[in-house]
């Protein structure tokens, strides 16, 4: 299938990108790796007037440790995250997730920032960001992850705003991401991520609602000394997962509990 026509410009810097977006108007869109966007263009489910290509914004391709934080540039590709020694050392769960995004070809192109801006309910990184209280840095402000993801495919970004960086807390401790899917390269039907921090366990869930979920009830049960199975039993509390051709809402609730328990057991 063939995308509808659009204008196209390349940005070499954040400033250029924002200026181009502003000039192109409200129907313009950013294209980074484009691995989710191009299929939408081809199916004509998305018909932007203008694409601002940020692949040339090299200043956003980095992994920087800073104190107890790990700053990751928005244009860092999945394949870079998989291979990055800094990520392996300071936030190995991010590398574990990155290795499970799409397939090698997708990982060679797709970017961290693209995942955040696209805000698919089945995206993996948003789960990590929400459970670890990461901060999304844009060209103009800093937004907490829990405020950034507002609904399905909907973020706090203004039309001319660009994701520049995601700041995660470092977390080298025990961790695990279980991505349940029918085929190895599919999106998660449900994903469960766990990360042991100095302050206790953090637990996040993928694709159990319109946005990523932090399983606070599981965390507090663990804090209170519950066993993994006991704690994981709370993983479905308050969830309103979607029902679709892959899975019913009930099954997703069930998976949330099973995968959370398994992730805890495997991480520990």
């Amino acid at each position: 299938m063939i995308p509808a026509a659009f204008q196209y410009s390349k940005a070499g810097s954040v400033r250029e990108a924002v200026a181009q977006l502003r000039e192109a108007g409200p129907e313009a869109k950013v294209i980074a790796g484009g691995q989710s966007l191009i299929p939408l263009l081809r199916l004509r489910l998305s018909q932007p007037s203008h694409l601002v290509d940020v692949n040339g914004v090299r200043e956003l391709d980095y992994v920087h440790p800073e104190g107890d934080l790990l700053r990751v540039g928005a244009m860092t590709r999945h394949s870079t995250l998989v291979r990055s020694e800094l990520v392996q050392r300071h936030l190995p769960l991010l590398a574990e997730m990155a290795a499970q995004v799409g397939d090698p070809q997708i990982r060679a192109r797709g970017t961290l920032g693209g995942v955040f801006a696209h805000a698919d309910a089945a995206g993996d990184y948003p789960t990590l960001a929400v459970m670890l209280d990461a901060t999304i840095v844009t060209d103009r402000r800093r937004v907490a992850a829990r405020d950034f993801f507002q609904h399905l495919f909907t973020t706090a970004l203004a039309e001319d705003e660009l994701v520049c960086e995601v700041v995660f807390p470092m977390a080298p401790g025990p961790h695990r991401y279980i991505k349940f899917r029918r085929r190895l390269y599919d999106w998660a039907i449900v994903g469960a991520a766990v990360q042991k921090m100095d302050s206790g366990w953090r637990v996040g869930l993928t694709h159990v609602g319109p946005t990523a979920v932090r399983a606070a009830a599981v965390e507090s049960r663990l804090q209170a000394g519950a066993t993994f199975p006991e704690a994981a039993g709370a993983a479905a509390d308050g969830l309103e997962p979607p029902s679709d051709v892959r899975a019913s809402a009930d099954y997703r609730r069930h998976l949330a509990q099973v995968l959370t328990r398994r992730a805890l057991e495997q991480a520990a």
Binding site: L43, R182, R183, L184, Y185, D186, V245, R246
Partner: peptide
């Protein structure tokens, strides 16, 4: 039709 693309019509990969 609900399973209109290869995203939803699950032709298995080598791994399955």
């Amino acid at each position: 039709l609900v399973t209109g693309t290869m995203l939803d019509y699950l032709v298995p990969t080598m791994n399955e």
